[in-house]
């Protein structure tokens, strides 16, 4: 079952299309990394999921029910969210801020305490939020979102301003929540920040979804280059000339965009033509490379 599905979700401001035709599928109990460069429409999409921004076209379904102005109130009770800047009244303490959330949602003390402990804010509750560091504000915002024990958690760049240890803690928290069945959607413009936590990805660029699927599918979608090690790369290149685009790099030949079947045939041809080959490998690709290739190319 998918917790979030959208059909042709679109938002335009004036003539500028900010989000275009998104068909999101966010499976239940996963951590869905929503990635894209600055201005690609991540926050706008999340606001539409929460019905804070009216879509120009398309539909949002959450937990099988439509999400719109009429259903928003009921739906929001089971969705925790943190959008853009972390919230919090500076003239009140962290504890007083949480009390406001507790009262407006009718939560009990234990729910609030669990949320506070999850983000390790217990020791900072008596401090005024105006004196919080950015990381502490971010934690408070996450605690506010968590306190209602949501089935769906939507976090917009929650690791902004956190130190490496803090980022690691949030990653662990997200994984822990997902393992309990909570669906987590988390955005970032930096892949590295959520890379290890997420098992599903949606990659956005200029308002369009370039990729959506599991980690394995993501790696598969971006086929890494094949490197053929040979003392005679020019000779080898000549053999393949006209059939494939190749590039000579030192003692190896680089071939892009070929699957395993084609690779096998290429090797057979080279050996048949008498080219000396001592190594065939796929280039190691980090998720970062995949992300950069996808977003920079603007296509899949």
């Amino acid at each position: 079952m998918d917790t979030v599905t959208t059909v042709n979700l679109t938002k335009s401001y004036g003539r500028q299309a900010v989000v275009q035709g998104l068909d999101l599928r966010i499976p239940q109990g996963c951590v869905y990394g929503f990635l894209g460069p600055n201005g690609s429409g991540k926050s706008t999409t999340m606001k539409m999921l929460l019905s804070l921004v009216q879509p120009s076209a398309g539909e949002v379904h959450i937990m099988g029910e439509p999400m719109n102005r009429r259903t928003r109130r009921r739906q929001l009770a089971r969705i925790g969210s943190l959008i853009e800047a972390p919230p919090g009244y500076g003239h009140l303490t962290g504890g007083e801020n949480l009390r406001l959330v507790q009262r407006s949602l009718g939560l009990d003390e234990a729910q609030v305490n669990r949320a506070v402990q999850a983000v390790r804010l217990d020791k900072q509750l008596d401090k005024k939020v105006a004196n919080y560091s950015l990381g502490m504000k971010q934690r408070l915002g996450i605690a506010m979102a968590l306190a209602r024990e949501p089935r769906l958690l939507i976090l917009d760049e929650p690791t902004n301003g956190l130190d490496p240890a803090g980022i690691e803690e949030i990653r662990e928290l997200l994984r822990r929540l997902a393992s309990r069945g909570v669906t987590v959607m988390v955005s970032s413009h930096l892949l590295g920040e959520i890379d290890k936590a997420a098992d599903h990805f949606g990659i956005l660029a200029e308002g369009r979804l370039l990729f959506q699927g599991s980690r394995e599918q993501l790696f598969a979608a971006a086929v890494p280059d094949v490197l053929i090690d040979t003392p005679e790369p020019r000779q080898a290149s000549a053999v393949l000339d006209g059939r494939l685009t190749t590039r000579v790099e030192g003692g190896s030949l680089r071939i892009g965009g070929i699957d395993n079947r084609v690779t096998a045939r290429v090797v057979a041809d080279l050996v048949g033509a008498g080219a000396p080959i001592y190594g065939v490998r796929r280039e190691e690709q980090s998720l970062e490379d995949v992300f950069m290739t996808l977003t920079a190319g603007g296509r899949l």
Partner: peptide, 24 residues
């Protein structure tokens, strides 16, 4: 189903009084 209530009027007003603290 969670027992969370959302957007009731009473708590909103009580919260407004609570926000007056330290606000002078």
């Amino acid at each position: 189903m969670s027992a969370v209530t959302v957007g009731a009027t009473g708590p909103v007003v009580v919260n407004e009084f609570a926000k007056l603290r330290h606000l002078r």
